[in-house]
Write a protein that binds this DNA or RNA. Structure first.
Lengths: 167, 167
DNA sequence: TCGGGTAGTTCATTCACTGAACTAGCCGTA
DNA sequence: TACGGCTAGTTCAGTGAATGAACTACCCGA
């Protein structure tokens, strides 16, 4: 975000986090990485982001240790996976206030099929489920009419496990 | 954030949330509102944000129902308070990866003094504590040497309850 | 060596942020 | 009713970043 480093900000971890993931597009890139996107071209078509910006953001995320770049694929590191609670909380807030038809996506604990709340707590077993054990599927508020038609988007709307590469 | 409204984004609550709180400075404004700041001038001095930008952001947050503007004070609405899990998750991530000396701030359940984790769960009673029942104080990673000297910052570093106006 | 796909880079334009200075309105005082 | 100070903005020129389209570099298989 390139916020100026003020004294106040040096003592705030929120400001520090925003330096890393607060820039335009960055959290959407991380979202897609959770959903299984790994290739430059797939990020580009899915997000509709200018390719120059995508290059900059991916490079920065790799430099900061959020993504790993090997064999042409961008994959979330443990540090990147640590952003899951942030993403989940933001999705829950958006669902609650901007999606009258219900959640856009449903997250489930793969082991028992329980739904996950905004804190990733499973409705069946009560545990907080790590993203690797979570499946994602379109929710009741998902609108197929406005969905994108490209193969990557289609693949994204198929129920699948988080972090697994798209088929 | 003024992201272009693509088809893909219409089906993502994360993107929708970012339209509201994804712009530069916005989450820091909301943070300060949680910490008790309510007046235009206090936001301005605390954040070091250009006043024109602050005007724009505050107006937008009021328009979106995140803040309430009455008697010259900007106060979080219920919708705004709903952003607490987002802020808490981001702070926890920043503390974990960018604050080797420990958390910058400690949050406690006022009722029993228990520490809160990244999901606002109390270490004593085990409940998820709403922000109104949370107190904030400098944590082990807080660096007084780089702290700001103005009265507002000083007031912020004094242990106090979230959402309560600064004395 | 040709074509196609992937992963970028380049560049002119547009847009948003920055920082400093200026203004408008309110309040207490004389 | 004039004055000064305080708060909450607005204005504006300069700068830097995002946009979108076109271009390049590289690899791979035929």
């Amino acid at each position: 975000m390139a916020l100026p480093s003020t004294y106040a900000d040096r003592n705030c971890s929120l400001a520090r986090s925003l330096e890393i993931v607060g820039e335009r597009w960055t959290l959407l890139i991380v979202r897609d990485a959770f959903f299984g996107i790994r290739r430059f071209g797939d990020f580009a078509t899915q997000l509709g982001i200018p390719r120059a910006v995508l290059t900059t953001r991916l490079r920065f995320l790799v430099q900061e240790g959020v993504l790993d770049h090997t064999d042409g694929e961008y994959v979330l590191t443990a540090k990147g996976i640590g952003l899951w609670p942030v993403m989940r909380a933001m999705m829950a807030w958006g669902d609650e206030h901007y999606s009258p038809g219900g959640d856009k996506r449903t997250f489930r604990h793969e082991a028992d099929g329980g739904r996950l709340d905004g804190a990733s707590r499973c409705s069946v077993c009560g545990e907080v489920v790590p993203p690797a054990d979570v499946t994602i599927e379109p929710g009741p508020g998902y609108d197929p009419d406005t969905a994108n038609a490209d193969p990557v988007s289609a693949s994204l709307t198929t129920p699948h496990r988080l972090l697994e590469p798209l088929s």
